[in-house]
């Protein structure tokens, strides 16, 4: 009987401690956010969504960092707001041939912070990006970039390097 009481007390203490500890555990990961009617009210006023995924080709003579560029693929999702700010992501993989004649790719991943919807129907976005020349050098981060985007292609400028327009050959670019 005494042994049972002792075990019961031990179990009770354990359960109490667990309850206290679980309550004190930090919440990890993602938890559901309560719906908030206070945000998003004017979300779409003056907002332009730039969405695209596909691939394209460069005109002859496109060169970056010694790589003769032939084409590339892109994926982007950016919300451009009327006040000149923007949020979203921009990604391109540029394909070409290096000075040794070896096929190579350059990876550009951009964090978009500003943008504008232009009167001609195009959009301009800018921010900073990570450039991986994939040639054994350390990727560059925080590099300023801009991109001029139309439904038919996009023109990318990274740092001081302005590339010719990549003309879309597959996929879609949507500005709406």
């Amino acid at each position: 009987m005494s042994l049972l009481n002792q075990k019961a007390r031990s179990l009770g203490a354990a359960l109490l401690a667990v309850a206290l500890l679980v309550g004190a555990l930090p919440t990890t990961g993602i938890t559901a956010a309560a719906p908030s009617p206070a945000v998003g009210t004017t979300l779409l006023a003056g907002t332009t969504l730039v969405t695209g995924a596909g691939s394209g080709v460069f005109p002859g003579g496109a060169v970056w960092g010694g790589v003769a560029l032939s084409g590339g693929s892109f994926g982007q999702g950016v919300a451009v707001f009327g006040d000149g700010t923007a949020r979203g992501d921009f990604q391109m993989i540029l394909a070409g041939t290096n000075v040794l004649g070896v096929a190579t790719k350059i990876l550009v991943v951009g964090w978009v912070t500003a943008g504008a919807a232009n009167p001609d129907g195009s959009a301009s976005i800018s921010g900073t990006c990570r450039v991986d020349m994939q040639d054994g050098t350390v990727p560059s981060t925080g590099v300023p970039f801009t991109a001029a985007i139309t439904t038919g292609g996009l023109q990318l400028t990274v740092g001081a390097t302005a590339l010719p327009t990549l003309v879309k050959s597959a996929g879609w670019i949507y500005l709406e």
């Binding site: 956010a33 998003g40 779409l44 695209g52 596909g54 999702g77 992501d89 990604q91």
Partner: peptide
């Protein structure tokens, strides 16, 4: 719930690579 989603990049699929881009607002 409120939440804006945007993104762009590549993933793999049985045929190779695929590019994606998305935007969603409410």
């Amino acid at each position: 719930a409120q939440g804006a989603v945007s993104g762009g990049g590549t993933v793999t699929n049985p045929c190779g690579d695929a590019s994606f881009g998305l935007n969603s607002v409410r």
